[in-house]
Amino acid sequence: MKHQILFLSKTIFQNHYNKVTPLSRFLSTQEAIERRSHLFTLEKKRQAENVGRIEKIEVKYKGVPNDCTLVMNKGISTPYDCARHLSEWHVDTSALALLDGTVYWDMHRPLTENCTLELQNFTVAEPQQVNKAFWRTCSLLLGACATVAFKDTVPVQLHSFPGPDIRSGSFIYDIDLPTLPDWKPTNQELYTLSAEFVKLVRQNLILERLEVGEELALEMFRDNEHKTKQIPSIARNNGKVTLYRAGHHVDISKGPMISNTAQVGRVTVTSVHKLIGSQDSDVKQLYRFQGVALPTNVVLNHFAYSILTERAKKLNPARSPISFATDKEDFEPESIAAKV
């Protein structure tokens, strides 16, 4: 297995994507995850080495405790590094960075030019974008915990997740379980899924971002047919696909994510609904996993939280990716939509 991966990585470095020999045996979910993560690491390392000579940029920090100018490395330093210059509180509580008052930037994404930096936490005056990033991260982590929770005999094919809609009351991931045509999760199974989620969250994983070429993305998601179909349309804009990694789980998503899974506080996986596809579509049915979560700094009594979980149990009205006969271009999952 390792030998094959090394061979694979060598060929990638030599940019011979098309000539990669297919792996002789079918990969289990676990092995696929490891492989994806390994490829991610290699690509990240390659991109870091490509930066070359280190140039300096000026980052003007605006905010608490006092405005200051930081001199950081271009293409290497992240807003997280800027926060480390300020204080531990900044490091722990900032979830998102705001550049020049307009662009929302991930905390662990390298800065590329001189800019004005504001660190956003969950109690900022205008937290809409931070909340959206939070919801998006929770969807990603829901996919992660679903791949881990099932036994090896049950293959899990992640399909996609739509853009974050907080007012709907729950975050979603649409997952294809080909070997389970009729599955209704019992309460115990939902608790187990929530426990897996919490385990993942308590590992304090950083959400790393990487922009990757189309071929490499296709290579990474080779075992997942749904993603393989989505990648060409995602990469249509500029040939790049943005990937996020949390621990070993890699997924495709366009938008900024929060800085660390430790910022997720209370979380519950509330329900799983079955989505039936139309006659034309290739995918016959999807399972919509739903959950609700709150950031760590929020203190809410158990009754209010129970209201939220009860509401999240109802089927989320977000559009299903498979249940319409029109062509797929109408559907815009989180990964595809325009802005980078």
């Binding site: 109690t123 937290p127 909340n131 007012r167 709907s168 009351g169 709150l294 929020v298 209010a304």
Partner: peptide
């Protein structure tokens, strides 16, 4: 606009 208030309002 805090996330808990948005969720509770919607509920």
């Amino acid at each position: 606009l805090l996330i808990q208030n948005v969720l509770l309002d919607a509920a």
